[in-house]
Computed example of a mutant assay.
Amino acid sequence: MTHGAAGTHAPPAGPGPAGAGRGTRGATYKRSGAWRAPEARRGNALHAGAWWLWALGLATAASRTTNPLLLGLIVGVAGYVVAARRTSAPWARSYGAFVRLGLFVVGLRLLFSLLLGSPLPGTHVLFTLPELPLPGWAQGIRLGGRVTAEQLVFAFYDGAKLAALLICVGAANALANPARLLKSLPAALYEAGVAVVVAMTFAPNMVADVARLRTARRLRGRPTGGVKAVLQIGLPVLEGALERSVAVAASMDARGYGRTAQVPPAVRHTTNALTLGGLLGMCAGTYGLLAAEGAAYGLPVLGIGLVLALAGLRLGGRRSVRTRYRPDRWGVRAWLVSGSGAAVAALLVRAASVDPEGLRPGVVPLVAPTLPLWPAAAILIGLLPAFVAPVPSEESAQ
C-alpha cells in the first residue's frame, strides 16, 4: 500500500518539458518585472519639476477646451495618477481639497449666472427670477430676470474649465515634494523660490492641520460640522500657521538666507541686462505667437529671449553661496513624465485649431457635446506617469 502510494507521486521536475515550462514562466516573470517601475528611494525619486511640468501640460490642455467630456477625462487622468503615485506625506493629502475647491467654483459660477444673468441670447427659458431695478450708471448689469438653459450650460462649461485647471495644480501639489523642488531651482532664483515654495505649502499644511484637528475632535466625541465647530477649528489652524511661519523664519535666518557673494559690478550689470532683455524677448515672442500677424517672428524672438534669460540666470547664480547636498537627478523617467504632459498639451493645442467645434461645443444653438476620439486618446497619454514613475514608499515620503 505504501509502495502504491509512493508510486502515485509525480516525478520530479527535470530537464523535460514540465521543468522547462516552469523555468520559462520564471524567466518570463523576471523579464516582465524588469520593466516595472522601481520602488522610490532617495536616490531614484522622481524629480519634482517633472511632476509640475506634467501637471502644467494637463492644465494647458484643459485651457484649450470647454468640452465637459474632455475636461472630465483630464480630471480622471490626473486623479488616477495621484492615486497611483502619491505618498503618505501631509502635503500629499491636498488633492481632495483642490477637488472640492473645483466643485465649489463650478457651483459659484452657476450661482453668478443665475443672479447676474448672461448676455447670451437664449430661447430655452427655464424660469424667471424677480428682477431688481438698477440705476442708469449700472447699465449692462441686471439682478434676476429670466434664466435660460443656454446661459446655464455656458456657465457650467466655463466653471468646469477653471475647476480642471485647479485640479491639475492640486495634482502637482500632491505629487511633487516642495522641499525637493526648492533644491532644484537655479541659484539665482533661490530667494524667490523660497517664497514661492512657502506659499505653495500653505494650502497642503492647512489641509493637514484641519484633518488632524477634526480627527482629534471626533475622538473626543465633539461635533466636526456646523458653524461653531468651524470656528473652533479655525483658531488652532491660524495659530499653527503663525507658529510655523515663525519657525520657518528662524530656520531661514540660521541658514544665512539672503547672504550673497561679492561679484564685480560689470557682471552684475550684465546679469541685469541679460535677464531683463530675455524677459522682454519672451513677452514679445509670446505675443507674436498669439497674434495672427506675428506668427513669423514670434518663435525666433521667443527662442532668443529664452536664451538670454537662461544666460542671465547662469550669471546671477554666481552671487549665491549656497551648496546642494545630494541634488536630484533628471533621469529617463523624469523625461517620460514631463514629456507625457507636454505631448498632451501640444496635441490638444493642435486639435483646437483642427477641430474647434469638437473641443468647444456650441451653446447657441444648444447642442449636446460629443467626445472627439483622437483628442481623447491624446489625453490618455497623461496616464504614463502612473506606470513609469517610481512606486512611492515610506522613505520617499520624507
Rank of each mutant, 00 (worst) to 15 (best):
A250C: 00
R212N: 09
P17C: 01
V196G: 02
F387S: 10
G7I: 03
G102T: 07
G305T: 07
L108Q: 10
L242W: 14
F112I: 08
L238E: 14
L114N: 07
R218F: 03
V267F: 00
W35C: 01
P265Y: 04
V77D: 10
G170M: 07
A20W: 13
P327R: 00
H124P: 11
P38F: 02
P133C: 00
V363M: 11
L129S: 01
H269G: 01
V237F: 05
R259S: 11
L371A: 10
T224N: 03
P15K: 08
A172T: 10
R41D: 11
A208N: 12
G234L: 12
G170K: 11
P133V: 05
V77N: 08
L279Y: 06
T2I: 15
A84Q: 06
V321F: 12
L166Y: 02
A37G: 09
V77E: 05
R333H: 12
Y325H: 12
P236N: 10
K228S: 14
P135R: 03
R42Q: 11
R326E: 07
A309V: 00
E239M: 09
K183G: 14
R42Y: 14
R268C: 03
T215R: 02
A48F: 06
E395Q: 11
G21I: 14
D209R: 07
A84F: 03
R350I: 04
E394V: 15
T8P: 03
A345H: 01
P133K: 12
A273R: 02
E39M: 13
